[in-house]
Design a protein around this nucleic acid. Structure first.
Lengths: 350, 350
DNA sequence: CGCGATCAGTAGATCGATAAACCTTCAACC
DNA sequence: GGTTGAAGGTTTATCGATCTACTGATCGCG
């Protein structure tokens, strides 16, 4: 049986063996019913299996002008968040007969824009770009026929459909919650006080908003930038503790950072949530089994994946341009676990 | 500037504008030096940018008979282990001018074999299949021209090159370490006592070997099967504790399971490592910052990624069949952290 | 009986890039 | 002078599947 499936069998060959035209083979292969009698169909199928014929995708794509693949640009696969996103999208597109091809951008603005470079884009029937760096300026230059949906941190003024996480609301909710539970000096771990549209900046803005709402002043020294690994969270927190900075709450920009912080607090003998309360952002798996379990913001990833697919599919099927550009904002909700205190009855005293 | 890059510009168009033949354009695009004068080259490039020409990959693949892509079949992307693997491979192949396309198999034997179905394979110039289910029987049926490298849990008797993790040695090392540190009743969490070639079965075999080496009997009731999420580790451990089963060590088949176990032990007030020592397997990030930090087996993933790429590249470039089938085994090493006790001086008393 | 419709299928052009072979110049060398 | 040969191109024939248009039958129906 070996030696059968050598890849040079073409529709021609199948056609010859079944004594029909190549076009008829094509019709069978593509299930174009009504154009082939049951009789011929069986004969063709027999020839296909006998010869071990398989469609040449390149030829098909060339002729059809479509590739049957959708691209996904993400900063990295080595992250629970993006891994899960890729998985979710891949499944959904597969159901619709499309393959998902993943490109990693490394999170650099340059690379993100490169993956939107038209040269890249037209290998795909559609493209999903997860924008981490989130620099909107470069986007407008892109000019392509390929439908694109952006997954972003913030509604950008670009020509593309857009699914965004409500980072400001999420940051606000997390901070508000800490304030309600009695924390007054809250560290914004991994935060940054800037008016850029990046994820940390937006979540920090929520943090500031929450303080403003209840009329508390924010000590800017509590906004502590860092990168987003556990290492970074650990280091940053350790440093704060060494410096003897007083704080009773931590809003970490991501769960990774939060987990690093928990570890640093444990090392220093600081009790969570008794001495310091901690809230993360992302609802990572690890946070559900950490000691203590991590209170966090749930970003509704499944719903966002659904929205992305819907947007892209409608762009891909609809004739060009009938649709308004759409922006879908997904709310972030808080999940309460052990790293924060329970609701306090009565007073708002210390 | 908008409206330029409409995707129907072909080499013909560029050629016309630059007053050369399409072949010359092709030569420029592909950097075939020596066949084009600097003068013409510049003229062609000018035309390319002016018209916004981009190569049609489908046409190129059809003609060349190569797609420039490598496939990777993995059980899921939603896992730190496979995510990191995908990332590592993607980077390495990209350096060599190849795109990596990821297919998820869901870890089912059927799906794994499907992704080796010849029909799939010939969209790729090469394929890497990470075998979780590890059923060797189906492999022999596969008959394809596409080079394939297997990433497996065990050296299989198949026709393919193979990079394997030394699961037995890893399981043995972990268990041996626990025994040395004074644990006598060691739970094999997520283990399974069977002669299949699956990851848990192999690691469990290492566990048994380690006991055999020092002449200890194993209480089979301590081999506790489970799936491989944190949830499962948590549940399984909680149940053991409820049942009042005595144990002073846990060898968890994966770090995920181990982290779930740590959490369950914490809930029950069992001290780690004082009352129970825990060793995991995989060296996940989360284990480096858990409370306590997790002792684990490091699987040398980067080295394995290198090996995979080497094997596949040589198959892809070398003429068919000159090479012997190769199997590369990577050793697993132990990383000591807080979830196990320090070395004990002197006696081996309880 | 004759007209259009439906079914089953064929013929030929085409998608866009490239491999292989072929043609000029022009320079160098014996 | 004739030959070799490199440099710089061009021509032509594909790669394999599919789209468009067309051909014969066969059938229903007024």
């Amino acid at each position: 049986m070996a030696g059968t499936h050598r890849s040079n069998v073409t529709m021609q060959d199948v056609a010859r063996r079944a004594a029909v035209s190549p076009q008829t083979v094509s019709n069978v292969v593509n299930g174009r019913s009504g154009r082939v009698s049951e009789d011929t169909r069986l004969r063709v199928i027999e020839s296909i299996t006998a010869l071990g014929y398989r469609v040449n995708q390149s030829a098909r794509s060339l002729r059809r002008g479509r590739t049957g693949t959708v691209g996904l640009g993400i900063p990295t696969l080595d992250s629970e968040y993006y891994g899960a996103l890729a998985e979710a999208l891949s499944d959904r597109f597969l159901e619709r007969g499309l393959r998902l091809v993943i490109e990693t951008t490394g999170g650099a603005v340059g690379a993100e824009m490169q993956s939107l470079a038209s040269s890249r884009l037209d290998s795909y029937d559609g493209f999903v770009l997860a924008l981490a760096a989130g620099d909107t300026d470069h986007l407008v230059q892109i000019d392509t026929d390929t439908p694109v949906v952006l997954l972003g941190e913030r509604a950008l003024s670009s020509q593309f459909d857009h699914v965004v996480m409500d980072n400001i609301a999420g940051g606000c909710r997390a901070t508000e919650f800490l304030l309600q539970r009695g924390a007054h000096r809250i560290v914004a771990l991994g935060g940054i006080d800037s008016d850029e549209e990046s994820m940390p900046a937006l979540r920090t803005r929520g943090y500031l908003d929450a303080h403003a709402t209840v009329g508390f002043d924010v000590d800017r020294a509590l906004i502590v930038p860092s990168t987003f690994g556990m290492e970074a969270g650990y280091e940053a927190t350790s440093r704060l503790l060494e410096q003897g900075r007083a704080f009773d709450g931590v809003f970490a920009m991501t769960d990774s950072v939060a987990l690093g912080a928990l570890r640093a607090l444990a090392d220093a003998g600081v009790r969570v949530p008794d001495d310091v309360q901690v809230v993360g952002f992302d609802n990572m798996r690890a946070g559900r089994y950490s000691v203590p379990r991590l209170t966090t913001i749930e970003p509704a990833n499944e719903a966002r994946a659904d929205a992305i697919v819907d947007l892209l599919m409608s762009r891909m099927t609809h004739p060009r341009g009938d649709l308004e550009r759409r922006v879908i904002v997904h709310p972030a909700t808080l999940i309460e676990r052990e790293s924060t205190l329970g609701p306090r009855p009565g007073t708002k005293a210390n």
